[in-house]
């Protein structure tokens, strides 16, 4: 500030000041470009795109006779660990009016709370309003992890 005010070494000062501004500008430019790039390279919360197959969790996550609803893309999928120690994955969207279904352990059925629609554990509609069976998904066990994928 003082340098600008002084009049004698005006030219040199102005030039130096311009150089200072130039480096300032370059720094600003660097920040404006580097910041998005660094942010871009930072791994996002969800590690990678998972649509055709989803890791549903560890084998022990779902105990025998229990179930879990996971997100598959933007649709819910229900995974059931049956009493005979098998895993089944079915679309959790009721075929009647798009409610989300749940596993009823005592009746050994998949049940929709909205209108009492019932499906067997193969997804077949057995009672109530559902017009169609639930879509099936494939479950593969790999390294103690449950991987759900679309039926080919």
């Amino acid at each position: 500030m003082d340098q600008i005010g002084s009049n004698k070494p005006e030219k040199k000062d102005r030039r130096d000041f311009l150089k200072f501004l130039l480096s300032l500008g370059l720094t600003g430019f660097g920040v404006a470009t580097i910041y998005p790039v660094i942010s871009f390279l930072k791994p996002p919360k969800q590690a990678e795109v998972e649509v055709n197959s989803v890791v549903a969790g560890k084998l022990d996550d779902i105990k025998t006779g229990e179930s879990k609803i996971i997100r598959f893309g933007n649709k819910p999928v229900i995974i059931i660990h049956t009493e005979d120690d098998k895993f089944r994955a079915l679309s959790a969207t009721c075929t009647h009016l798009d409610c989300t279904v749940q596993y009823k352990k005592d009746e050994k059925i998949i049940w929709c709370a909205c209108h009492n629609g019932k499906y067997d554990l193969y997804g077949k509609n057995i009672s109530g309003p559902p017009p169609r069976p639930l879509d099936k998904f494939k479950v593969v066990i790999k390294n103690d992890e449950l991987i759900v994928s679309k039926e080919a």
Partner: peptide, 10 residues
């Protein structure tokens, strides 16, 4: 703003 600043300086 940052880029324009640099433009002006240059």
């Amino acid at each position: 703003a940052l880029i324009t600043f640099l433009i002006v300086i240059i």
